[in-house]
Design a protein around this nucleic acid. Sequence first.
DNA 1: AAAATTCGCTTTGTCGGACAATTGGCACTT
DNA 2: AAGTGCCAATTGTCCGACAAAGCGAATTTT
Lengths: 245, 245
Amino acid sequence: MPSAYEMVADAIEREITSGRLKPGDQIGTEADLVRQFGVNRSTVREGIRVLEQSGFVRRETGRKLFVCVPRYRNLSSRMSRAMIINEVTFRELYETAQVLEGGAVEAAVERATDDDIAAMEENQLRAESVVDDPIRLADVDTEFHALVARSTRNRVLELAREPAALLFFPTSEMICRRVPQGGSRMVAAHREIIDAIKARDVERARTWMFRHVRDWKRGFERAGRDIDEPVERIFPKLSPGASFL
Amino acid sequence: MPSAYEMVADAIEREITSGRLKPGDQIGTEADLVRQFGVNRSTVREGIRVLEQSGFVRRETGRKLFVCVPRYRNLSSRMSRAMIINEVTFRELYETAQVLEGGAVEAAVERATDDDIAAMEENQLRAESVVDDPIRLADVDTEFHALVARSTRNRVLELAREPAALLFFPTSEMICRRVPQGGSRMVAAHREIIDAIKARDVERARTWMFRHVRDWKRGFERAGRDIDEPVERIFPKLSPGASFL
DNA sequence: AAAATTCGCTTTGTCGGACAATTGGCACTT
DNA sequence: AAGTGCCAATTGTCCGACAAAGCGAATTTT
């Protein structure tokens, strides 16, 4: 027997997943829902919290409850935190990065538009200008990979890599900070990858992405870390600068 | 300024992510939290709903609030629903499946234990026995891929594929039902994959996984579907039989 | 008349208290 | 010691209330 607040949340969620409520639609006020479901406002509010947390509805600055397309960021960030608690190791992260970034760059070679490439070039300019600033460089690197992923025009793939990607940044930052020439190698790899995408050269793109990710692992090892160590609290907090996502 | 219930949720979440509260630990009663945070019980309860939905805490049949390792199933299923609402296409699903299942089988070749292989063999036996029952076969197929993923000993990779995998099942079922000999081809492919894993033959494993996934797409096409069609409501409900996940 | 301001209504966030149902633990019985 | 029944604790839900913040409309100002 599901409790009342669960029924409220489920009922509204069904309205959304079934398409009867579409993104952008407004949901009634709390008082409306009270009347609609015949439960107390406290109960309605608990149901709303569930939906809000699920990402199905959003409230904007204390007002107006409206349906929204669940933005992945929420879910991804929660998955990232789940991974931390589960004490996943750097090795797991690395291996997954090879698979996902390799797959992403392959699809990007196939589908990247001129706009996508322009965005990467712009990113590259910024990368070159902050090559000696570990924090900024790690941030730019994270963005670079997100740009590659977006170029795939594949939201499922983009989504699949995001939880892990959120954990890339903090480690990248640590690596850039501790490994001399890590920055220049990174920028050089990006250059090759962009050129390979431009030339629609899948093999070259995969090769350089592979090297780039392998460098990332080597940097991690040279920084004196054990790759079988949990990524647990290697970093202070989750990607403070990844605001562009 | 964050609202009170958010502060409660954040505070408890920090206790968990920082490691001060460990999985299995009990969190005080609602009354305790009321005293601890100096807010009303309704407020505490809203905060608890948020945490519960995030997967950080769980309540067992109306009692005892305890910290738990966020189990991915919740998050994955939510991501799947998000993908449906975003109207991802079969093509996106297919492309991602190639990347992820290919990567998974490669890691599985490297790390599968005897137990893993035994589980796959057992799964294969069941597959052979239900080769003409589309629903059961699709269910067994989903389990097969989950077994491969588990063999990787890579929770990040396992997690990355799960949201997409939850969408595989319903389409598999449709394909098995509509394409004659789809079942036998599937069983044959599984056989090859298992043998390749046993033989630690990466190339063969990748090749057959690739064929297997490609068959899946072909089945989809032969069933008269357009692969650029949103997977929206191809299926009635989300994986009713995937209880083993 | 157009723009700015003020006033009031609505809605949210929070609070305090209340009650039935369920559960856990404890004392009591066998 | 094991089983049983009672009491206290706890949860789910409800009711009513209030301050703060936003929105709209009426009003005032330019």
